[in-house]
Design a binder for these strands. Structure first.
Lengths: 126, 126, 126, 126
DNA sequence: GTGGTCTAGACCACG
DNA sequence: GTGGTCTAGACCACT
């Protein structure tokens, strides 16, 4: 799987890594059990610091997307669940985004179509 | 309209204000032409810094949700549009969020239902 | 509240800080709403690095013992709960410790008495 | 007796081996005089390093749970005692664990019941 | 080789 | 002033 880091983005690097790995899982490019590049490897590949990579990996571990295998390093797992807390935070997170789109004149259908398009990419991939 | 600020959220206060005003417009609680509380007023109501409120208002002005009226202060307007740039950024913003939900085992329908629920609140309100 | 760091201990410094703050809460020395010393303050007080302190604070935040207030910094909260996951990890954690004590000839009563002594210190303090 | 190694645990493998052997003694599955599998044997059974197994065995020997017999290899013994040093370290070890449980709202009785449940498994087994 | 911990020091965002 | 992010580089534990 290929990561792409935008250094000029206002999204922190560790967050870009985190997001892209989750997207990689959603798109089926990363399967349960897959080993990720080592912290140092990824850091040197992108010319970033190993702590930055570690932060991304650790968050993913906390959230249940990764495990640390004592020999293999970080490995894709699937412990993350959509519990009530998550659903709540999900709503809270997309609420302002959808409100913004709606205020700009997009219709409910247009917005839902975009969501659906994105979700279709994930279908049967996880 | 009533604002609610969470000082212990990881979302900056100016962003909370910005989001809630947009949500207020989406929900029909703020109509075109409505005057917002003055920067001083809002800042003192919540015990926050003037700069914080001004930053929120200025962003909303830049995005076309507010206008500055010489006497009335900040006034709700509706110049914000969903141009290609916005659509692009919208997709980029929700992509990782939807991926996360999908990876946690939510189905396409479940996710879309949540989006729809939110959007229904806005219906016929703008 | 006073922290004591043992630099020669094989327990990582961030873990010592984490443990002592939890103990401080258990002993009633830290109450909900109390503000902790700032990361930089604590780091300089003990001559340790601010990242070390931050790591301790961040773990406590993740576990629900602290919140970050945008003006006050890290603040004691009480969101940590003893859910099934915690109970499970608790059992897994003390199992080998109790087994060790038992193998060394301590009786059930002796071991339980020590546990009780410790717990009595916490009574009516949280 | 059967060992179970979790490669994705944050507990080092040598520590898992050490703990499980002590637990085996506490549970009566390992009696004084029993011979443990050879280092080579155990290492190859689990696909782990010889050093890892040896480290676990050596610690157990240092603590008085094992003896090295010239022909039989590592043999269970019962020289480990609960001296003051041990009691002290025991208290220090469980103190933060019990504090954590208490802070999460568990009562003294609930916590003691869990300890007792564990200890009951060991009863009349050593 | 892997990750885990810690340091020293920088710049930025926020309020 | 607060915390958040990132860097560069060190040493250690584990396997």
């Amino acid at each position: 799987m290929l990561l792409r880091i935008e250094f000029e983005s206002d999204i922190p690097i560790y967050m870009q890594i985190k997001n892209q790995i989750i997207e990689g899982i959603a798109l089926g490019m990363l399967k349960e059990g897959d080993e990720l590049p080592s912290i140092r490897q990824l850091a040197s590949d992108f010319g970033i610091n190993l702590h930055t990579v570690k932060k991304a990996y650790d968050i993913l571990k906390d959230e249940g997307f990764l495990n640390v295998h004592r020999r293999k390093g970080y490995v894709v797992t699937k412990n993350a669940t959509a519990d009530d807390n998550f659903i709540e935070s999900l709503k809270k997170e997309i609420h302002p985004i959808l409100a913004n789109a709606y205020c700009r004149g997009m219709t409910q259908d247009e917005i839902l179509r975009i969501c659906k398009e994105i979700l279709e990419q994930f279908k049967n991939k996880v």
